[in-house]
Simulated assay, not measured.
Amino acid sequence: MSTTQSLITVLKAELKAAGMTYASLARELKLAESSVKRMFAKGEMPLSRIDEICRVLKTDFAELSRQVADAKALRRELTLEQEAAVMADPKLLLCAVCALSQWTFEQIVATYTLSEAECVARFVQLDRLGIIELRPLNRYRLHLAKGFRWRADGPVMQYFRTRVVGDYYSGGFDGEGEMLMLVHGQIGRGLATLFNERLQRVAADFAQQHLADQKLAPDQKRPYTLIIGMRSWLFGAFRELKRDPDVHGPSVVGRRLNSAARDV
């Protein structure tokens, strides 16, 4: 990613942290909302415009530059100790998951039975753990990269497997906008990576739409959870019925082909 693109990304994150939309920024800059959208989409704006945006956001260019430099060091994974600390407190885990989804302080308090004091205390803990950078007015900047994942065998994923998976799949998946699909097949080894990349783009689209729809009224939204998985796997009951090529020798098809060749 170029420095200019990184700067635009940081500016977008600052707008989000400040609870500002393109429309509200446009009003502050005395511009049309379409002009602001185009400016961010193309990534083309003079330094004077960046200074104006910094004024609105109550920051400066030096701070933006520091964030651009820090962006390369965003965490893609937590240590075992950090994950264990998150798992030690259900309310801290809740705030960590909400922070990953870019929820605001106000959204968390309005949605869950956490008092403002409890939420502030958890934000302070997340700051100490290096997951967020807490800012005035309970705003924060996420210190986790877009490709962040919980440790494969860490405390959070262990909790997910034992407590969350069963609860998630116990539903009927027949409600509005719901679906459950299981597709099994054999593909070339190299193609598995390509499918993983496609699935990651779907997850990124979902996350981006979540951010875009935060401005909608509560009655216009519903909570959805997207779980994507892909692994080399065969159902246990089927594994028991599978032939062992080392024991049974060539496959039936192979034997038939060999027999046909001899007949020719």
Results as ranks from 00 to 15, higher is better:
residue 42 K to Y: 06
residue 49 R to K: 09
residue 61 F to K: 11
residue 47 L to I: 12
residue 44 E to D: 08
residue 50 I to V: 15
residue 61 F to A: 12
residue 31 L to A: 04
residue 40 F to H: 02
residue 60 D to V: 06
residue 52 E to N: 12
residue 40 F to A: 02
residue 40 F to R: 03
residue 59 T to F: 06
residue 40 F to L: 04
residue 53 I to N: 01
residue 48 S to W: 04
residue 59 T to Q: 06
residue 32 A to I: 10
residue 62 A to K: 10
residue 49 R to H: 09
residue 62 A to G: 07
residue 29 L to H: 00
residue 55 R to D: 09
residue 49 R to Q: 08
residue 38 R to H: 07
residue 43 G to V: 11
residue 44 E to L: 02
residue 60 D to I: 05
residue 38 R to V: 04
residue 46 P to T: 15
residue 44 E to M: 01
residue 35 S to I: 03
residue 57 L to E: 07
residue 36 V to G: 12
residue 57 L to T: 11
residue 37 K to S: 11
residue 48 S to L: 08
residue 53 I to G: 01
residue 34 S to M: 06
residue 57 L to R: 06
residue 31 L to D: 01
residue 39 M to V: 10
residue 32 A to Q: 13
residue 56 V to P: 10
residue 40 F to S: 01
residue 41 A to E: 07
residue 51 D to F: 05
residue 44 E to K: 10
residue 35 S to P: 02
residue 38 R to Q: 08
residue 29 L to S: 00
residue 47 L to R: 13
residue 49 R to T: 15
residue 39 M to C: 14
residue 38 R to I: 05
residue 34 S to Q: 10
residue 35 S to Y: 02
residue 34 S to W: 05
residue 56 V to K: 05
residue 48 S to E: 12
residue 46 P to R: 10
residue 53 I to D: 01
residue 49 R to M: 07
residue 58 K to W: 05
residue 52 E to Y: 11
residue 33 E to Q: 09
residue 55 R to S: 08
residue 50 I to Q: 07
residue 42 K to M: 12
residue 61 F to T: 08
residue 49 R to I: 11
residue 59 T to L: 12
residue 57 L to W: 11
residue 51 D to W: 04
residue 59 T to K: 12
residue 59 T to M: 10
residue 37 K to C: 02
residue 51 D to S: 12
residue 55 R to W: 14
residue 59 T to W: 13
residue 30 K to I: 07
residue 40 F to K: 01
residue 42 K to N: 15
residue 36 V to E: 13
residue 36 V to W: 11
residue 28 E to M: 00
residue 53 I to P: 01
residue 46 P to G: 14
residue 59 T to E: 08
residue 63 E to Q: 13
residue 40 F to W: 02
residue 42 K to D: 15
residue 55 R to F: 14
residue 36 V to N: 06
residue 53 I to V: 14
residue 48 S to D: 05
